[in-house]
Each structure stands twice: as structure tokens, then as C-alpha cells.
Write a protein that binds this DNA or RNA. Structure first.
Lengths: 232, 232
DNA sequence: AGGCTAATGACAGCCGCTGACAGTTGACAA
DNA sequence: TTGTCAACTGTCAGCGGCTGTCATTAGCCT
């Protein structure tokens, strides 16, 4: 039986890193460096050997710290794996917020996505090479445990976005099914796209962007009646 | 690093149980009983104490076998948790297969679902009390690790159904995005429904059935333009 | 009855993860 | 500068999920 720890685990983002901006300080700098090093070491090992084949000890050793220290920076091995993704997702959420409220919900989501690609790319690059992050997506798709975690995180993100959409439209999220339904549909198409993309050769962000745009165009036609009477 | 075992793990369904039908035999009978007992013990403990709070040792002890034996029947703790779900899902897949090919894809999925509820209920009851299975759904929704696994399994199921849909329509699954898109949309609505349902009081199968039907009616309206100009 | 083989239990060990404790090292004031 | 405090870290021990190994048990078949 696992009990809730008395100490505060990092979970998603270390809250104590906040005052770093005011005045870095040698201590904060070292922490930042250790975390970045752990992060890069982890992603590199994951993409080279595979996620399951990489032990936390391997990562810690690559970053010259103890295994215990790894777990002081990341709540779990999985937490480290999705650290960069969290950044990217928050950019998308911001983009949705920024959409003018007169746009229809599904359009707003599409346009927010289109607008945030470059921002996402830049944000990722601050942390790790963009190409490394993109390659890691293939590891996610091909590793059951990671894919499962990815999907769960995706639904959490969808809930957050559904709240934004409901707010835009002035609706009660629990009374009206439509916000969650549109967002779920949007998310579903995104995940189908990710999957197809990760199975292909071109692992670039541009390829993902284009494929996503293409698939989103097929949502409406795919839902209407008889496919055989209309052209592809 | 985990290595692939030399022995064959059960994974999803024990393949050696196949010849049981020809002539049960005392051996097969005992195996069946042990597996059923492990399954029920697991689900009961999961719903009573929670999934994380139940160790495999607890389950094994409740079924009077060693922990090692548990892992001979189920590939993992998670595998046991979803054993019943697998049964239910296979019934749904069969129902999709049975739909007349002239129905539009989304209609076929809806009608297959509507047609399979009772079949699913019966199939589940063969294995464990239906009410136990329904209660366990709430555990799934409230346990991150289980929810993640559930979502991953759901996407695998969607891939299978997408193949069926593509077959019905005579399309190449990898060339035409529409089969995967409809199925993904359908699945997305299903998961939203499950979530809402599990948060409510009425944990009955009938409640899930009605809620699902209701939400599926909202798919088309939710995707079209301006919500404020049309009624809820 | 006796041999064959599947099923089981007992044991050891890996890996993810956590609590506890002690040692080290920046931060900050006297 | 120096001393104190708090933060960061390493070490160690231990739990739970999971697997390989091997000896033992128990159904099956002649």
C-alpha cells in the first residue's frame, strides 16, 4: 500500500523555482542546470535506447547525480518524459484564450492551433533541441506505458480547454454537453493525426502541422451520411 | 532494464484455455475456478479499498494462492482489472460487424451500441456480478493509472473498429482519413459520456446507455457554427 | 500403479519509488 | 570574515510490481 508522502513532490512544476527570475543566485542556477541536464539526459536515453530500457539510475548517472536526486526534480520517470510537452500544451491553451469570441468553437480551436505552432517550437527549443522532442514523440507512440500516460494527460488538457470554450460561449460546462463534445472531437482528431504522423518518416513539426490541418478538414464530411455518394 | 521473458505471459487471454470446451477435465475446472476467484477478489478489493491500495499479495491471499500464481493468470495487476472490459468490448465489435452495410458509418456505430447493451450485460454477468463491474468503472475514472490504461485500450479498440468501418465502405484505412476520424469522434463522445456518468449517482448500465444516446445526439449540432443562434 | 507433464509455491532479484538521516554547501547577517 | 541556518544532496533501507528458476505437487494417461 502506498501512502501519501509527507514531503511535497514536484508533481508537474517545481513551485520553488518561481523566485529564480528576481535574482538567480548560485543555488538557483545550479538547480536549473541540474534539472536541464537530467531532462536532456533522460530524453536522449529514451530516444536512443527506449523508455523501458532506460532506468532512472541510468539517467541519474548520465547527469552525475544520485537516483534520489532525480526524484527530487521529477515526481516520476514519466514526469520527466512529459516535462517538455507540458510547456507546449500551455502555449496552445494560451492561444485558445486569445481567440476572438465571435469565432465558432471548432474554428477557434483550429485557428488557435495554427497560430501556436511557431510559439510552441520556440518554447521547446528553450529547453531541449526541438528535433529531440519531435523524435521523442515516436517513443511515446510506440511505448504502451507512455502512450497511456499521454492520453490521460490529453483528456486533462481537454477538460481545461472545454472550460475555456464554455466560458467563451457563456455556457455551463456541466449543463450543456456541447463544449466537452467539440473539444473531445477536436482532441480525437489530434490524436489520430499524431499517430499517423509518428508512423511516417518526416518527424518534423511542419509535417505534423500540415497533417493536422488536413485531417481537421475531414471532420465534417466524415460525419455526414453516405461517403460513397460524395468524393474524397 | 526489463528483458523479454522466455516463457509466454498470459497477456490478454490464456491461449491454452481453448481446448477446455472439448472436455473440461478436473485440471481445467480448477484453473477456471482459480482465475474466476482471483478476478472477483481483485475487483472486490479494488472497489472496496481502491486500486492503488490493493497489493497483488492481497488479491492472491484472498484467493488462497501465491502471488506468483496470480501473475500466471494475469500479465499484470492492470490486466486483471480490465479482464471483464475486454469481454464487453468484444461484444460491441461483433455488433458493429453485424450492422447492414447500407447504414452510414456513424449511424452504424450508434445502432451497434444500442443493440449490444443487453448482450454486454449478459456476458459480464457470466463472469462477475454486473453491479460490481459497473462500480469498478468509477474506480477506473478516479484512478490515474487505470484511467490512462483505459484510454490506451480504448484507442486500440478504435483502431480495430476503424478497420471494420473501412471494410464496410470499401476504403483503404491508410489512404482515407475518414474511417479513423469518425471512429475517433464516436470514441471521444463515449469517453466524455463515461466520465459524466461515473461522476453521477446512478451507476447502472441503463443510465450509461441513456446518457450515451443523449450525447451522441449532440455531436452534429455541436460541430456546426454558432451555438448561440440555435437552441440547446 | 507408475510415469509424464502441467500447475503451483518458495525464493531470489530487478526496477520504480519513498522515507529517514546525515553530510555538504550556498545564503545571509553579525 | 565568519558563523549560523536552510537548502540540496547522497546513502541506506524498504515496499510493491513483476520475472526467472527450481523443486514439489497433483491431474492425466497407459
Amino acid at each position: 500500500m502506498k501512502v501519501a508522502g509527507t514531503s511535497a513532490p514536484p508533481e508537474t512544476a517545481p513551485p520553488e523555482t518561481a523566485p529564480a527570475a528576481s535574482r538567480p543566485g548560485l543555488r538557483e542556477l545550479k538547480k536549473q542546470r541540474t534539472r536541464d541536464l537530467l531532462l536532456r539526459s533522460a530524453l536522449e536515453l529514451f530516444t536512443e535506447r527506449g523508455y523501458e530500457e532506460t532506468t532512472v539510475d541510468d539517467i541519474a548517472e548520465a547527469a552525475d547525480v544520485s537516483q534520489r536526486t532525480f526524484f527530487r526534480y521529477f515526481a516520476s520517470k514519466e514526469d520527466a518524459a512529459f516535462f517538455v510537452s507540458r510547456l507546449a500544451e500551455s502555449r496552445f491553451v494560451e492561444a485558445v484564450h486569445a481567440r476572438p469570441p465571435e469565432e465558432a468553437p471548432l474554428d477557434a480551436l483550429r485557428l488557435a492551433l495554427a497560430a501556436s505552432w511557431s510559439t510552441i517550437g520556440e518554447a521547446v527549443e528553450q529547453l531541449v533541441p526541438l528535433e529531440l522532442h519531435m523524435r521523442f514523440y515516436r517513443v511515446i507512440e510506440s511505448t504502451p506505458a507512455l502512450l497511456a500516460a499521454h492520453l490521460r494527460r490529453a483528456t486533462e488538457l481537454e477538460e481545461e480547454i472545454a472550460r475555456v470554450v464554455a466560458g467563451r460561449e457563456g455556457l455551463d460546462l456541466d449543463a450543456d454537453p456541447r463544449p466537452r463534445v467539440v473539444v473531445a472531437v477536436f482532441g480525437a482528431v489530434m490524436r489520430v493525426t499524431e499517430r499517423i504522423w509518428s508512423a511516417r518518416d518526416d518527424a518534423s513539426l511542419a509535417a505534423l502541422r500540415d497533417l493536422t490541418a488536413d485531417y481537421l478538414d475531414h471532420v465534417a464530411p466524415a460525419l455526414t451520411g453516405n461517403w460513397r455518394s460524395s468524393e474524397t
